[in-house]
Design a protein around this nucleic acid. Structure first.
Lengths: 151, 151
DNA sequence: TTGCATCCGGTACCCAGGTACAGGCTTAAC
DNA sequence: GTTAAGCCTGTACCTGGGTACCGGATGCAA
């Protein structure tokens, strides 16, 4: 049933479009070690096997689960070579703890915002509302506003 | 009861220490318009009024509530000049919606991670577990892993 | 064969919220 | 008086995950 003896290889633009990512992102992931260097056509153009699209989907899903690209690269790597280990499971459990902590934190924040609204605060520094809950001095010492991490 | 006719001004290091921030951050906030340019001593050193420490606490709390520095700057500004408005309240309500959405999203992720663990997945791409829930193809299309925003 | 879309590699830039460093002054303690 | 700590300005760098731009080469269709 094969139609093309050399396989139905895809060009970078096709892979990118099917996976819903920017073509530049493919080269970026290649540099980061997330996808293997693909074969090249005679003119030097990348020729991707079709399952690269699926791989990208997996990567995007893992990102959504809270893994960084470095972590995804590692997970893919341990998955590729060597027998299955419980590594993924352990990492997933650790992520669950992170996510739970984040949910707790957001819930605290939600509560505080609710207080601002229901008390009718009108200024961060010179609020005129009665029983003003501001300035949430204790809140300031919470976890830093985590930059540059998904989830 | 005043002890010093020139006021008990603080130097940048003192303010930074009491507010628990890096001294560089003070200058950064000054550039960003979050704190006013303070008076200077004879040698050019900044002399801060003591309530700057409180102001920093308020800024940090607002950040924790999910406001960006630009938003905090605006809120402080509208609070400073002009009469109290319902601006803060409206913005707080909008943030509540954002926070709620984020909690929902994290809950979805938590569920997915829980499935990975309970199914015993051992590989992102070649999982050998029965009824493997991977690769969560639908998850890949969710909200992008929000970079560079607090909350 | 001509013309345009696509791809190539390399490099620079984007976001937010800071942090660090260099080279020179000031201030406080001894 | 000396010395160290602290502060000054300006500029560059950091994180993470990409995106954009450049000049040049290739691929494909009419």
């Amino acid at each position: 049933m094969r139609q093309d003896p050399d396989g139905p290889y895809l060009r970078s633009g096709q892979v990118a479009e099917r996976a819903g990512v920017n073509p530049q992102t493919l080269r970026y992931y290649e540099r980061r070690g997330l996808i293997a260097e693909p074969a090249r056509g005679p003119g030097g153009h990348r020729a991707y096997p079709p399952d690269t699209v699926t791989l990208l989907t997996v990567i995007k899903a893992a990102q959504r689960l809270g893994f960084t690209l470095d972590e995804v690269a590692e997970l893919l790597d341990t998955g590729r070579r060597g027998h299955p280990t419980s590594d993924l499971r352990a990492r997933a459990q650790a992520k669950i703890a992170e996510v739970d902590a984040k949910i707790v934190d957001l819930t605290t924040i939600r509560t505080a915002l609710g207080q601002v609204v229901s008390a009718g605060c009108d200024s961060l520094t010179h609020c005129t509302c009665p029983d003003c809950p501001l300035p949430f001095a204790d809140l300031a010492r919470g976890p830093a506003p985590e930059e540059s991490r998904p989830t």
